[in-house]
């Protein structure tokens, strides 16, 4: 699973690629956390456009990153989920606490609006 990071002001955009299961969540978690902690960012956007699969391990990973952003007074937004990811996202009840948007720029706009 690949990860690409981009900082836009106070928003960190992490583009994930591949299958977000237990194995990949374990690999991703430290990379994402180190980068986020060492950045000036408080908001995190996960660009899920190239994520082809996710299970409950992915949901757990997302909840953990949501908590990290919250600790910094920020928010987490998921962008570009395909329909099977969206199904699991809604099923998990996560959509009540985590925003999701159709595009990355919508996500950034949403978070910068909240500063």
């Amino acid at each position: 699973m690949g990860i690409q990071l981009d900082i836009q002001g106070r928003v960190m955009v992490a583009t994930l690629e591949g299958e977000l299961d237990h194995h990949q969540a374990e690999r991703l978690r430290p990379q994402l956390d180190t980068a986020f902690e060492n950045s000036p960012c408080k908001h995190l956007v996960l660009d899920m456009g190239e994520v082809s699969f996710m299970d409950s391990s992915g949901i757990g990973m997302i909840i953990g990153r949501y908590k990290n952003a919250e600790k910094r007074g920020g928010q987490l937004t998921l962008a570009c989920m395909n329909s099977s990811l969206a199904k699991l996202f809604e099923f998990s009840g996560l959509q009540k606490i985590v925003h999701s948007t159709a595009t990355v720029s919508d996500a950034i706009a949403k978070m910068e609006g909240g500063k």
């Binding site: 969540a25 978690r29 299970d55 409950s56 391990s57 949901i59 757990g60 990973m61 909840i63 953990g64 699991l88 099923f91 998990s92």
Partner: peptide, 14 residues
């Protein structure tokens, strides 16, 4: 503690 949310069985069932 391992960021598990207890959803696995519920996902399988649904």
């Amino acid at each position: 503690d391992m960021e598990r949310s207890g959803l696995g069985f519920t996902v399988m069932e649904s």
